[in-house]
């Protein structure tokens, strides 16, 4: 017991240092757009992890919510001139709406069939994004103005929007953490661990799964909306199945079912992509190698292996 409180002190310190670093980043001359898009993907991966890590559902269609959120938020600012906070909320609502529908259909099946249904449905959303007039087809929506926060503070400068993104990011991660460590989260874990047993204890497993799916989709929509404002573009890349695959990689690399794993995973994958693209290395090759190494060598992911190591040392 003593050791576990000891480790949790370390975790708390790491969180505080992390937050301080994130606040200080704009003054450290780190390219802010890169950091911001990293935070968007970290929030995306963390939302995805709510399903994979805590309910045991592998969605292969989360790009639909990410891209959907990006398109709606982009359209709301660009065409309707909504302020950024409203647009991001709309992005979240779009994710939630898509999530309820897709989730309802997908949770009727389990395992690989569940994943295939999410993939198929997200491909339908992709098709709509290609065909519908409001998405701009191949060009996507661009340039998306960043607008004025609450209609007052202009977010056009990178430093200004950085703090908006940081605030949404921290709030989002906190919300996900709260859900995972709540009475509801405890039931989710029970479902993940042994679904028939949870049913035999009287839990309407479908309802819990659907709520979790919708929450995950909504937060993914928020991440997508945020990303549209940061990069000022909402395009087909956001909504392809490759993006669904990428978020799976981020989560597995960082550690499934850990709070900080997906954040770390997103940071690593995005940094690698950014770095390799600049030196002209074919990114998918390395991503593939990482994926294989991860599955063969450290299945718990980086944070997962670390936690495992620490808990083994404890006993």
């Amino acid at each position: 017991m003593k050791t576990s409180s000891y480790t949790s002190t370390w975790v708390k310190m790491a969180i505080i240092i992390g937050i301080i670093l994130l606040f200080a980043a704009p003054f450290l001359k780190i390219y802010p757009v890169f950091l911001m898009s990293m935070m968007c993907f970290a929030l995306f991966a963390a939302s995805f992890n709510l399903l994979l890590g805590y309910v045991g559902l592998l969605s292969f269609g989360h790009a639909a919510f990410f891209g959907g959120g990006a398109y709606i938020a982009g359209y709301a600012t660009k065409t309707w001139g909504f302020s950024p906070e409203i647009s991001v909320i709309l992005g979240g609502l779009a994710g939630a709406l898509l999530g309820v529908g897709m989730g309802y259909l997908a949770i009727q099946r389990k395992g690989i069939y569940f994943s295939m249904i999410t993939l198929a449905l997200s491909q339908m959303v992709f098709f709509i994004a290609v065909q519908a007039p409001f998405t701009g087809g191949e060009d996507g929506l661009q340039p998306i103005p960043r607008g004025k926060l609450f209609g007052i503070v202009s977010l056009e400068s990178n430093n200004a929007i950085y703090f908006f993104v940081l605030a949404v990011f921290i709030t989002g991660i906190f919300a996900l953490w709260r859900v995972v460590n709540s009475p509801f989260g405890q039931v989710l874990k029970a479902i993940r661990e042994h679904e028939p047993r949870a049913i035999s204890l009287g839990y309407d497993v479908h309802r819990y799964k659907l709520i979790a799916f919708t929450m995950s989709a909504a937060m993914t929509g928020v991440a997508g909306g945020l990303k549209a404002l940061v990069t000022q573009i909402a395009s087909l890349t956001d909504i392809t199945w490759q993006t669904s695959g990428e978020v799976i990689l981020m989560t597995i690399l960082g550690g499934i079912g850990t709070v900080f794993g997906p954040i770390l995973g997103a940071g690593l994958v995005k940094s690698l992509e950014d770095h390799l693209a600049s030196i002209g290395f074919p990114v998918p090759v390395l991503i593939g190698i990482i994926f294989v190494a991860c599955v063969l060598l450290f299945r718990r992911g980086i944070i997962g292996e670390l936690e495992h190591f620490l808990s083994r040392k404890k006993t």
């Binding site: 709260r178 460590n181 009475p183 509801f184 405890q186 661990e193 042994h194 047993r197 204890l201």
Partner: peptide, 28 residues
């Protein structure tokens, strides 16, 4: 529930009747 503790296993069964199963906004 293999990765829950013995106490948590039993507690999950108690949660529903106690009305403590859907609060996602509260601390566990």
């Amino acid at each position: 529930f293999p990765h829950l503790t013995v106490l948590e296993n039993v507690r999950v069964a108690l949660q529903r009747k106690a009305g403590l199963a859907t609060q996602f906004w509260q601390s566990d």
